[in-house]
């Protein structure tokens, strides 16, 4: 019990520290923090499905795109409303539309397992990306612009930094609650052996659909913020295969074993990319590639796994 209170206290302190950080940082560093929170949020949502059930989606950028375009189109309907209302309205649109579409495709697509599910999600993302690029409602190849919703007197990057931080805290809390619930245990049973779980009476289909819809909807929510921060979106910028891959890479680099994995992975990968490699732009992809290969071969359970192993070793000595 004392341990749990310590952890809670630490979390509150950490969030408080992160919240005050923008007052001391340069705009560039605030933007780095913002990128970390966004990619950590995406990774946690992807992990919500993959980490619990071992259903590895290769197309979660679909939900980023849906959330982004839902937010952009929703804002067109209320051009005169107060910025705070517009913000809530567009984030709500991202959450509901992405969650809704996830619910529609969940049943057929979750019948597929293993590689087939992985590829099918890739196909979903590709189809949606091409459709958005093809139909004029979505601005075609020119895309859509979003208004600046930051209140007067607040720096834009700090504003989105705080929103992204809050959303990250929310999705982590959701993942944590699930991991302690009946749903979480059921999903873990699906990961170990889906057929056995079904025979033991776990409502596998319902649980998988719930995890999928939560994962997709929450990504849509963060996707809306992603779009608002960009200020201008096209099919290529939000239905990006590399966004899907980043969620996977960040989760695996950090470690699939715990909720901290995706967050640490996102912090390390985004931090390294934005801070260390900023001067090595030409070789940025290659160095990222080397990092990925190295982590898979050296730390197959991710950085969290590596740390746990080290600690177990030193405790055993």
């Amino acid at each position: 019990m004392a341990r749990r209170i310590t952890i809670l206290l630490l979390a509150v302190l950490l969030i408080a520290a992160l919240t005050t950080l923008p007052f001391f940082l340069k705009a560039f560093h605030i933007r780095v923090g913002l990128s970390i929170f966004l990619s950590a949020g995406f990774a946690v949502c992807w992990w919500l499905l993959a980490g619990f059930t071992a259903y590895y989606s290769f197309g979660h950028t679909a939900f980023v795109g849906i959330g982004a375009f839902a937010a952009a189109l929703a804002l067109r309907a209320v051009p005169e409303a107060a910025p705070a209302l517009q913000l809530a309205w567009s984030l709500g649109a991202g959450l509901v539309v992405a969650g809704g579409i996830a619910a529609i495709i969940a049943w057929p697509i979750l019948r597929l397992r293993g590689h087939y599910f992985t590829i099918a999600m890739l196909a979903v993302a590709l189809v949606l990306g091409e459709a958005v690029a093809a139909f004029p409602v979505f601005g075609g190849s020119t895309g859509l612009a979003l208004p600046n919703l930051a209140p007067m007197g607040v720096r834009v990057e700090a504003f989105f930094y705080w929103i992204a931080l809050a959303l990250l805290a929310i999705v982590m809390a959701v993942a944590w609650v699930i991991s302690r619930s009946r749903l979480g245990y059921g999903l873990a049973a699906i990961r170990e052996d889906e057929d056995a779980a079904q025979m033991l009476g776990v409502p596998t289909t319902r649980f998988k659909v719930v995890a999928f819809v939560l994962s997709g909807g929450l990504i849509g929510l963060i996707g809306a913020v992603y779009a608002l921060n960009l200020g201008y979106i096209t099919s290529d910028s939000v239905f990006r295969g590399s966004l899907s891959l980043e969620m996977i890479v960040n989760s695996l680099v950090g470690g699939m074993g715990s909720i901290l994995g995706p967050v640490i992975g996102a912090a390390v990968m985004t931090g390294v990319t934005k801070l260390v490699l900023a001067d090595l732009l030409e070789y940025h992809l290659a160095i990222t590639g080397v990092l990925i290969v190295a982590v898979v071969l050296v730390a197959p359970d991710g950085l969290v796994g590596l740390w746990r192993r080290r600690r177990a070793q030193s405790a055993g000595r």
Binding site: G289, I292, L297
Partner: peptide, 24 residues
């Protein structure tokens, strides 16, 4: 390593390195 996506990730990392070298 036995992880189903480990091999996939490694090929992805390798592709990143190669495409970068080709571009340079």
């Amino acid at each position: 390593r036995g992880n189903p996506v480990a091999a996939l990730l490694v090929t992805f990392g390798f592709a990143l390195i190669a495409v970068n070298l080709l571009t340079v």
